[in-house]
Amino acid sequence: MIEIDFDAIYSQSKEQKNATLLAQFNQLTEFHYQHCQLYKNIIDTLGLAPTNGCLELVPFLSTQLFKELELVSVPKSQIIKTLTSSGTTSAKVAKIYLDADTAKLQAKSLVKIMQCFSGKQRLPMLFMEPSNLIADRRGFSARGAGVQGFALLGRDHHYALNPDMSINWQQLEQFFTKYQGQKVLIFGFTFMIWQYFYQAVSASGKTLPPLDAIVFHGGGWKKLAHLAVGKTQFNQAMQQLFGKAKVHNFYGMVEQTGSIFVECEHGHLHAPNCADIILRSEQDLSVINDFGQQGIIQVLSALPHSYPGHSILTEDLGRILGEDTCSCGRKGRYFEVLGRIKKSENRGCSDTYQEVSHD
Rank of each mutant, 00 (worst) to 15 (best):
L57W: 04
H270F: 09
I214N: 04
F261K: 13
F176C: 10
K206L: 10
G267S: 07
L338H: 02
G243V: 07
Q294L: 13
I277W: 06
W194H: 12
H158P: 00
T207V: 15
P272H: 05
G329C: 06
V201S: 05
W221P: 06
I296D: 00
P308V: 05
Q199P: 00
K112A: 15
S90W: 02
M165E: 09
A151N: 06
G87S: 13
E282H: 11
N41V: 10
F261D: 01
I278M: 12
R340S: 02
T51C: 11
Q106M: 10
A94I: 03
V215R: 07
G188T: 11
H217T: 14
D316Q: 04
C326A: 03
K246P: 01
L153D: 02
C116T: 11
L46F: 11
E255W: 01
G218A: 10
K112E: 15
G292M: 12
L211I: 07
M165W: 15
T51N: 01
F175V: 05
S350P: 00
A91E: 14
D351H: 12
D99G: 08
N132W: 02
A213G: 07
L321V: 02
Y39L: 06
A19T: 15
A203W: 01
G329N: 10
Y198Q: 06
Q174I: 08
V262D: 08
L65N: 04
Q283V: 14
V215W: 02
L133D: 02
I96H: 04
I113H: 03
I278P: 00
L22E: 08
S118E: 03
S62A: 11
V184H: 01
L303C: 03
L55W: 03
A213R: 05
D99T: 12
F140M: 14
Q354C: 13
A23C: 11
Y97G: 06
M238Y: 04
H32A: 04
P308N: 04
W194V: 08
P308E: 01
A302V: 12
Y196W: 06
F250E: 03
